[in-house]
């Protein structure tokens, strides 16, 4: 079932960029986006693009692959090939906006936080997600939320983005 379409996603990303701007307009120089592979990166890049439109300021984007930080090797064994992290700038004293498509159990974000801290000591880390769904397993909550859905634990929410999937939308798969 399609929950949101491309137009709604893009509008939401625009709103989120505005929200971040309002909160951090005094420290734009310290700001950076770190996307969690793979779709988090696409969202981070779109946010950076939106930012450029209304501030003419380029916020750097980094990519995080949390495969080596997972708490279960089982998951790694069945996940696609590790692509590696690419963060071409120092995170020391930066304000990091961590970006992912969906937050569910919170375990991915937990792994991402561990990894980011191995790159340096940011001043602050905030979390942005396009979709916040229920059934968290760790005490981790996002600072910026695109859409919020209440679904059953066994249901799946998929975000498809043009950059990665050729189609775009947020879908619910009931199981």
């Amino acid at each position: 079932m399609k929950l949101k379409n491309e137009r709604e996603i893009n509008k939401k990303i625009k709103d989120l960029a505005q929200k971040i701007y309002k909160k951090h307009k005094k420290n734009l120089n310290d700001l950076c986006f770190i996307g969690i592979k793979r779709r988090g990166i696409s969202i981070a890049q779109r946010l950076s693009k939106e930012f450029k439109k209304f501030t003419n300021f380029k916020i750097p984007v980094g990519a995080l692959d949390i495969s080596f930080y997972r708490d279960d090797l089982q998951m790694i064994a069945h996940s696609p090939i590790v692509r590696g992290s690419e963060i071409a700038f120092s995170l020391q004293d930066k304000i990091v906006i961590l970006v992912d498509d969906v937050i569910y159990t919170g375990r991915t974000v937990r792994a991402a936080l561990s990894e980011i801290l191995d790159y340096g000591r940011p001043k602050k880390i905030e979390l942005l997600v396009l979709v916040d769904r229920n059934h968290r397993e760790l005490p981790i909550q996002p600072d910026y939320v695109g859409f919020k859905f209440k679904v059953k634990k066994e249901d799946l929410i998929d975000v498809f983005l043009k950059e990665e999937d050729k189609k775009e939308g947020i879908y619910l798969k009931r199981r």
Binding site: F68, Y69, L73, E115, D118, Y119, G120
Partner: peptide, 8 residues
């Protein structure tokens, strides 16, 4: 990386 170790 500054801390060249992963917890895998």
């Amino acid at each position: 990386r500054p801390i060249p170790i992963v917890p895998s």
